[in-house]
Design a protein around this nucleic acid. Structure first.
Lengths: 147, 147
DNA sequence: TTTATCGTTCAATATGTATTGAACAATAAT
DNA sequence: ATTATTGTTCAATACATATTGAACGATAAA
């Protein structure tokens, strides 16, 4: 494993951690992004020097998010994981969903604030708008990428 | 403090925590969003039932991010904090800066990968683009809000 | 001067959760 | 039938950091 690859993989670990996932989650994504062919759980655990338990759970999470996919070869009972062809639109969608969810939660909270001063209500509406508009523009990008 | 306000404040605590800040950071933001007039550190600590140490540090962070501002009254040596008139464009800017920073870090890592397969390089370029484009569109919204 | 108030800093601790090791079921190999 | 692989789950722990209490300096009040 070259230094420049390790460097990239570690960067992805830090970025995913910054984004609320675990460090290994990001390292795994970085590792598979560096590999054209799928890797087995054991291979990933060896290269990242982490337990296979961590690889198993984090690979599941990445798969659920649509960033990697499971593959297999005939006569081999190991699971192989590889990057999906375009994880980028999934990434836009993930942020979009998060933002939309927050906008929804704020809307719920706002509805309970009916008696409040209009200035306060308006602040909450603006906040809600922040998340909703952010979600929209990111969703637009994802759609453009897909078509 | 009404239930609906507390509910909103707690929601903001959870949202900020989800976004990588502390729970009190979000609660403080939520509290000041519910108040038209500035609150002193002691008032904020009392209403949120947290230590004044937490309020002090988190208020500083919110102030550095441009979401709240320090005010004062004549004949009173307490510090008062209130929401800035439009924290929303600051919020766009904060995400924009984060995204742009990540794009920059990925670019640095990519430059070290020169010998690699072109498929791999392209993946990294796409990833970089994801963060850069996200930063751009969010920055555009902030600019529209400001003018 | 003494006493009280206000805000900050920092070492100690509380807290949440990422990570792991071990146990396990399922399957394949011998 | 026995042994070895493979992947998952979960309780235990390692780890990062949010939060606090206490000490402090600065300033105002008494």
């Amino acid at each position: 494993m070259s230094d420049s690859r390790e460097n990239f993989i570690e960067l992805m670990g830090r970025i995913h951690q910054h984004d609320g996932q675990s460090r290994i989650h990001g390292r795994l994504f970085g590792l598979l992004l560096m590999e054209k062919k799928g890797l087995s759980l054991q291979q990933m655990a060896d290269r990242l020097q982490v337990s296979k338990a961590s690889v198993s759970t984090n690979a599941r999470h990445l798969k659920e998010k649509g960033l990697i996919r499971l593959t297999s070869s005939p006569g081999d009972r190991q699971d192989y994981y590889e990057l999906v062809s375009s994880p980028y639109d999934q990434m836009y969608d993930l942020i979009r969903k998060d933002m939309l969810d927050m906008a929804g939660q704020i809307a719920e909270a706002r509805e309970q604030l009916e008696g409040e001063d209009s200035v306060i209500i308006e602040r909450v509406e603006r906040l809600e708008e922040f998340y909703r508009i952010s979600a929209e523009v990111l969703g637009d990008i994802a759609n453009k990428l897909r078509k």
